[in-house]
Amino acid sequence: MNDKSVLIIAEIGTSHGGSLDKAKRLADAAADAGADCIKFQWVYADEILHPNTGFVNLPGGKIRLYDRFKELEMPPEFFETMRDYVRSLGKSFMCSPFGIRSAEELFALKPDYIKIASPELNHFPMLKRLNELESALPEKKQIPLVLSSGVSQMSDIQKALEVLKPLKKISLLHCITSYPAPPEEYNLSLINLYTKEFGIDAGVSDHSSDPRIVPVLSVVSGGRLIEKHITLSRKTDGLDDPVALDPDLFAEMVQSVRRYETMLPETALAEAQKEFGSELCKTVIGNGIKELAPSEKANYGRTNRSIHFMHGMKKGDTIREKDIGVLRTEKELSVGISPEYFETVIGLKLARNIKAGEGLQWEHTEQGVPPL
């Protein structure tokens, strides 16, 4: 990314459905549409969810969400092939890990960027491991990290950045974890706040259905990165396909961003107001106060990570590392305490019987209270 050009990231995620041919067609479409960077997701179901987390309704019928993620697991060779293919198109390769295993395997491939998705912003064991891996490299060879901040409080962002403080190549994406996300809730002036507060580049991960409003106004608001899902069709069965842009709409977004990024800020704002309306622009740009957006409030604690029991346990048992996991709560399970206490709870004894998948709470332990 040069000093003037916004980095446009085409999020393929798992829309390939496990097909290498489809992954290449998606990459071709993203490159043709003008993306700078093409992104994938390195999924291992047991790094993300407990099998008992609940069900999801898909076009093919009702299925366990855990099983849906199992279907999306791919071997390291798939990502190595796609890394090389994306680079052959003259584009950068980005990928999201979802736990320590996928983070280590991804890091070994030396991607151009590593993306921390919003639900993993508080996956402290993974962040610490990435910090260890990055810190072992000379600064010039460190892999840039891009953190997404959906369904988070300001304190969550601060804690994540504190873990990664030794690293220099970090940027932050403002995000709303809602599918689709209402443009009116985006509060894009937070981009400028993050840049000033943390001294790093910031941008937006946009889950709204519109191809232009949020990306254009993010540029007006000082954004340096834009991430948007791409799909060959919104009617296919990828988890994110309904909120993704087809290639034509993605190209439309890119063209608008490229036009606006050449303008002075005052000119860009005036042009956006003329194009989208002054009131809508004012609403989407927002007040710059970091709060959970209305559409994502119910997800806080459930979409991001907490500590869960991997299997049933009995009163008096001692918690071992293999007994607990840092997982998303999602559908049916109870929420656990923050992953920042993962190492703290190891060795504590249980005060009652525990069900598999249950979120760990302090009252489940004989200690009963968090450490001071």
Rank of each mutant, 00 (worst) to 15 (best):
N2W: 08
K4E: 11
S5C: 11
L7Y: 06
G18K: 06
G18P: 08
D32C: 06
F40H: 05
Y44V: 04
L49R: 02
N52G: 14
G54I: 11
R68T: 08
K70P: 02
E71K: 14
L72Q: 06
M74R: 13
P75E: 12
P76R: 14
F78Y: 13
S88E: 03
S88N: 00
K91R: 08
S92Y: 04
F93H: 04
P97V: 15
E104H: 07
F107V: 09
A108R: 11
I114M: 11
K115W: 03
L121D: 07
L121I: 07
H123S: 11
F124T: 06
L137T: 03
K141Y: 06
Q142G: 09
L147C: 09
G150A: 08
S152M: 12
S152C: 11
Q153P: 01
S155L: 13
Q158N: 13
A160N: 09
A160P: 06
E162R: 14
L164I: 12
C175Q: 07
I176F: 10
E184L: 08
L188V: 12
N192L: 04
L193R: 15
K196G: 09
E197M: 15
G199C: 11
S205R: 00
S205N: 03
H207D: 01
I213C: 04
L217G: 03
L217I: 05
L225C: 08
E227K: 09
K228G: 02
L232F: 07
D241M: 02
P242K: 14
A244K: 05
E252Q: 03
S256I: 01
S256K: 05
V257T: 00
M263Y: 08
T267A: 15
T267R: 15
L269H: 02
F276G: 00
F276Q: 00
E279Q: 10
E279I: 14
L280G: 01
K282S: 15
I285M: 07
E291N: 07
A293W: 14
E296Y: 11
A298T: 09
R302G: 01
N304A: 10
R305E: 03
I307E: 08
I307V: 13
F309P: 04
K315M: 08
T318D: 05
E321W: 02
T329M: 10
E330C: 07
E332L: 14
V335E: 13
G336R: 10
S338Q: 06
E340H: 11
E343M: 11
V345E: 11
I346P: 03
G347R: 15
R352T: 13
N353P: 07
E358G: 04
Q361S: 12
E363M: 11
E366T: 14
G368T: 13
L372S: 10
